[in-house]
Design a protein around this nucleic acid. Structure first.
Lengths: 335, 335
DNA sequence: TTGAAAGCGCTAACAC
DNA sequence: GTGTTAGCGCTTTCAA
């Protein structure tokens, strides 16, 4: 299980071909701008030798010489990157696609814990050409990176001194209200977040205002995080047609899924009896059952463009400090 | 947006402290085995200089010198690594944890497409110390890697000449049958895979045999991939108590979720009216609604141990060519 | 057309 | 206690 030989070097190739190191270098790299030229005959010999040895240019040596690794790092705060959720997996997919386009690879650092110094040392040790930073509120590392020589682009987190890509969530509630109005709904139940995340609170208020502007009646329910609709709210939905909300807007997709399940158990049909709308899912193929109508942040696209911007900064170009993306209404069949 | 200075080098530190390069090196590295010793006073001066400049040792130079990058690569065949599914995300999480333990980082290569040569060149260019290979049937790259100097460990894919970690699925059907028998079920509906994947077929047969051994009656249903139970099968579940299967075993978790949904729409309660058992989900928090009873392959643990094994081989130790993991019965509340 | 020298940042081995 | 030398694999610059 271990027949591991030494990795062949350019010297090995040159020796086998009977030429000097640099002749081999020039031949293998197709004579970039060096004044050195190689005859077709020796060139062939060198190529053959390389193939025979299974030579591959040493990326570490190249990186040392060029002061450039062609690797992009991912920083997700004190914890390891989490691809378990729709956000993380969409981001990862987008980053990979962006890297592919720009010929970069992606490095996932092991988690740093809360050790700021260690994180700085690791991020700044030259292993990467640039860094994508995912949201990690109040992380001192981010601020210190802004002062460093490393190019950093932040996603979903605006920073005054770094190019930032953010999604403008506030358009979502309006999109939903408008869509429901178009579908003929006049009476809506809004399930807000009982924990009152600020973004959730903003969304709720924005929805209420948008709905008011469209002449829709809105009832508010306070959903527990792990919980479900309270009996009196469920009863509201069970009243006779014409007298109850015809659609429920949920503050998150997760809650929407849970609600659909709860309502089905109680014999309520979706979307015939009542429509359901979610909010803010990333792309994933984990939940193929429901085709939920929701508002989505285009995280995959955001991540792809983050790489574009990062490469532009490392190339010395000026880039926008802030790029904003709108959310999209995704029309499913639950409303 | 671009105040990027030059990365400080050890020379800079030494110059600022007024000492020689290697004195700085020794001081900063805490005198490993070099006979060089540094007085406490100069040592402090050097440390201060390093801090002042924000010095971090250049990982690329270290890698060149040590012929070791402390980076582990991930190979997932011709396509980019896919973290969208439960398998991928569990694997990624396990790899990250394993890397953390061993002080390694994880490199995600951009996809190679079908270009075997390019893949070989990239994987063997010295950027990584070892490689984790995910299943990619009939991939010539895997075979050629076996002949290379690079240490490779394969997951979920047995290879004759590499340490391989595989999960023994065949224990699953038996676990399920036994559990159902213990819970008092005597009549089971088995929803097999109409597409007849070989593994699905094996599981079905194994379940039928295990159930027979336990004296259970088993009916078979052929579920469509995108579909659901056929009317006559649903009718079976709607018959009066005592006369119908009390539990349904599904060939996959995805199908189980879909089935639960379908049955709820028809007013059948889970698990009161009928129990549901799935098969083979990875860990994820994408689906927090149901707490499905299922059989799970411990991919996260497998990935963690894959790193252990990989590190052992790169350290020159002998390791098992094949490590087998049993599936686990995960008891939820759907049966 | 080919070879020699220098240097990217770092450290092990050996002087002094 | 501190400095010198050499070399990891590679490319660029210049000399033969």
């Amino acid at each position: 299980m271990s027949n591991k030989r030494r990795k062949p070097t350019m010297n090995d190739v040159a020796r086998l071909a009977g030429v000097n190191r640099v002749t081999a270098s020039v031949a293998l790299n197709g004579a970039t701008n060096a004044r050195t030229q190689v005859s077709e005959e020796t060139r062939q010999r060198i190529l053959d030798a390389a193939r025979e040895l299974g030579y591959a240019p040493n990326r570490v040596a190249l990186a040392l010489r060029a002061n450039r690794t062609n690797i992009i790092g991912l920083y997700s705060g004190s914890t390891a990157f989490n691809a378990l959720g729709p956000f993380g997996s969409a981001i990862l997919r987008g980053l990979q696609e962006g890297c592919r386009i720009h010929g970069q690879d992606l490095l996932l650092f092991s988690s740093f814990g809360r050790d700021t110094e260690r994180a700085m040392q690791t991020l700044l040790n030259g292993s990467i050409d640039g860094l994508i930073a995912l949201p990690s509120p109040n992380d001192p590392v981010i601020d210190r990176l802004a002062d460093s020589y490393l190019s950093v682009v932040t996603i979903a987190n605006e920073h005054a001194r770094m190019p930032s890509l953010i999604v403008e969530e506030s358009g979502g509630p309006h999109l939903i209200a408008q869509y429901l109005a178009e579908k003929g709904h006049r009476h809506i139940l809004y399930c807000g977040d009982v924990m009152r995340h600020t973004s959730a609170a903003h969304n709720q208020q924005a929805f209420v205002e948008a709905a008011a502007g469209l002449g829709l009646q809105v009832d508010l329910a306070r959903s527990e995080w792990k919980g479900s609709l309270r009996p009196e709210e469920t009863a509201l939905l069970l009243r006779k047609p014409g007298d109850h909300p015809t659609a429920v807007v949920c503050w998150s997709d997760t809650y929407a899924y849970r609600l659909i399940d709860q309502l089905r158990v109680q014999g309520i049909h979706i979307p015939q009896d009542v429509g359901i709308v979610g909010f803010d899912t990333g792309q994933s193929d984990f939940h193929p059952i429901y085709n939920l109508t929701t508002v989505r942040a285009p995280w995959q696209e955001v991540a792809m463009i983050a790489i574009d911007i990062l490469m532009a900064t490392t190339a010395g170009q000026e880039v926008a400090r802030k790029t904003t993306f709108p959310v999209e209404l995704v029309i499913g069949n639950t409303v």
